[in-house]
Nucleic acid binder design. Sequence first.
DNA 1: CGGTACGTTGAGTCATATCAACCATAGTGG
DNA 2: CCACTATGGTTGATATGACTCAACGTACCG
Lengths: 233, 233
Amino acid sequence: MTVLPASTSCDFCLNRSHFLFRHLSDTEIRNISFSKITETFKRGSIVYHEGQRMKGFYCLQSGIIKIYKTGFDGKEQIVRFAQSGDIIGYRSVISNEPACTTTEVLKEAVLCLVPTELLFELIKTNGNFALELMKLTCKELGEANSYLTDIAQKTVKERLAEVLMHLYNEFGFDQEGSLAIALTREELSNVVGTATESIIRLLSEFKNEGFIELKGRKIKILDKPGLMKIANI
Amino acid sequence: MTVLPASTSCDFCLNRSHFLFRHLSDTEIRNISFSKITETFKRGSIVYHEGQRMKGFYCLQSGIIKIYKTGFDGKEQIVRFAQSGDIIGYRSVISNEPACTTTEVLKEAVLCLVPTELLFELIKTNGNFALELMKLTCKELGEANSYLTDIAQKTVKERLAEVLMHLYNEFGFDQEGSLAIALTREELSNVVGTATESIIRLLSEFKNEGFIELKGRKIKILDKPGLMKIANI
DNA sequence: CGGTACGTTGAGTCATATCAACCATAGTGG
DNA sequence: CCACTATGGTTGATATGACTCAACGTACCG
């Protein structure tokens, strides 16, 4: 990982347009620019580990990462993904607890670490920022509850269809029309909450029934309405 | 449901000591006192329905309620419980979305409805309040993620043991030493995410093995360490 | 070229859901 | 007061979705 020159200003960062930051004054942006630390992470590297004390929250400038919890027997449960414009790790910072998830890079990522004190400062002094951040948290909480219900009630097949649609909506597709996020079968199983073999069988079932096309890790969705019907959404 | 005289001041409410409100000034408390609406709900009544627009958030003065999502086939998934001192419904208010859960009263409850505008006002003008509320949200989010992992990875038996310990820690016990919260078998199954029959079988298994004692809906926990071991916590 | 990580397939097993019958209790209304 | 109905609880039999285990194929990499 490389530490970029601190001069990289947040002004030029695409994330400037992120709804969370739209209420910040120029001075506040300058403060962040000044105190943030920018790092580049290669695929497979860990940004932070479960149990680790956070020094601040991260703002994703580019790349894709996965966020997961480690279950009792060591199996990982992927809780969410994040990409350009998303912020991660703020939950633990605000709760003032050790990180309760691990974050691993899937696609080379540039991350800015914004120190804890600055986050608290912003929340306390800029009500609109606080409100936006709270909205974000509430959105995540709603999604978590919703997915909880799905995992508790839906079959693996329904959940896989749902996850594929989810990934489609969140990450879109590349030039070939495949999902822009490429996961291993094991990672897919760690999102859906099932065994790798089950994912493999279901993927080829979906393929045979014409819902998707497979080329290695690349998944092309052919029949969105069909998948949504399977997923019951 | 009875509308109590508005003169019931928040000053005298036990919840005044709730950590969330400790940073409020006397003026702010008076504002809440003035604009809140206090209602009493009997067992079985619905405070708000999934899909409904919220007029504010609720503050539980007394009683116990369950909060659940309704799955595709109509089965309810209990997301959490709340009791005296807890606040509910703020998530949807802040996200400015229709309620994504239904709230039903388990034990006669007195609830205060604090209007939306006042909540936003407080967040924007009182940084410490915003921070406390955010901490609360983050705590809930952490718990949701944690339970997500459990449901995805643990067996029904492990989850039931965990839920029993959870209820014990959250609600304590009554004079007989039984759990202070009495749920039907079906409600228990809607927390654990399983079939009612499975809960019944597992409860009597726990009873036969000496972990618990059963008398109707009253559950007395006899062997905490044993249950925790089963739950893997 | 061998090693390592990922992917695939088949067979057997087990946990859990489903279905069906039945009991207990309490409230209701004639 | 009794039949009546509804709701919740229990038990057994059966079905099946999903996991586990094991073997093998494939592809990339130093």
